[in-house]
Design a protein around this nucleic acid. Structure first.
Lengths: 178, 178
DNA sequence: GTCTATAATCCGATAGAC
DNA sequence: GTCTATCGGATTATAGAC
């Protein structure tokens, strides 16, 4: 059910999505939603936590690669793979975070934590590569991803993300072998 | 009234904003809104056009600078100046475009046009600088702005935009004097 | 726990007085 | 043109049968 919520929130946006939409997507009756989540806000919170868990699983998988540069390039490759979805609905987490920043609930703070977790992980990779400016590079990489997601989405052009992804991978290569 | 709509849409998001909100912000009674705009969609459309007009005025002002590199750096400086607003509500146009991409109205196409107009103008500056890769550079610059807007907003950190702005200005300098 | 029916509220849109 | 009052529909949330 949380999985359905994450997907529908991504496709329609939190504000536009009704609990009936989620109930239909999860194939359960409406009343059932309220048995597990007392309010819509709690469902949104669960969705944010789901994104957090997914990030944890993703980084754990990437950690198995021996080379930090390879990890970053695989991360970028994963973004590019989702370019069709990004062209239609934007970055699953970025668009959610953007929307939460315009809501009154305190969930924007939770979103900030997840975003920071991604940045921190990327920063760790750059640090392993011996870069003293690891933090700034991490901001640059994540911002580049969020930015190309916005443009890919607005212009409805998955090719844009493919091109920018290649550029970023070359950029990581250049930083790894100076 | 359109001005009030643009501001409230930016601060609260289109979906969350009620026509009563806009009426209050513009200090007119609710019924009055419907006299000038038959539907909420028409008001959103007017807001997009307002963003388009503002972009036209901005680029016209920048054109008065003799040097393309100076124009781009002034553009970036303008973004950085608005960093406090960006930290609170994100890029005024980027967040709107992101939201329109999740709506059924056809206004996402209008938003795409405005975004493309910005990219085209930036591309023109890089072309004047003699860069054969002007288009890719324009995408890179606008994406960087949108990305740092998302991060500045999500992390509520205007300093992030200031730091990235400086980086982008140095980047433009480097491209102008190779 | 699962599901239906419905209450309570909010919002887009309209009617019509001035 | 300006403003008030209100309708109709949608949506969050609840009550209560099974």
């Amino acid at each position: 059910m949380v999985e359905a919520a994450v997907q529908v929130f991504h496709q329609q946006g939190v504000e536009k999505t009704t609990l009936a939409d989620i109930a239909r997507a999860a194939d359960v009756p409406l009343g059932n939603v309220y048995y597990y989540f007392k309010t819509k806000d709690q469902l949104v919170e669960a969705a944010v936590e789901a994104h957090c868990d997914q990030l944890t699983r993703l980084t754990a998988r990437l950690e198995q690669l021996p080379d930090p540069a390879a990890r970053l390039k695989t991360l970028i490759a994963g973004w590019v793979e989702e370019r069709e979805t990004a062209a239609r609905f934007g970055c699953p987490f970025g668009t959610l975070a953007t929307e939460l920043d315009k809501r009154d609930d305190g969930l924007d703070l939770a979103a900030a934590q997840v975003m920071r977790a991604l940045i921190d992980w990327v920063e760790g990779q750059f640090t392993e590569l011996g870069r003293p400016d690891a933090h700034a590079l991490a901001i640059e990489l994540v911002a580049a991803y969020q930015g190309m997601s916005v443009l890919t989405n607005t212009l409805r052009d998955p090719g844009l993300m493919a091109a920018q992804g290649e550029r970023l991978q070359a950029w990581v290569d250049g930083l790894a072998r100076p």
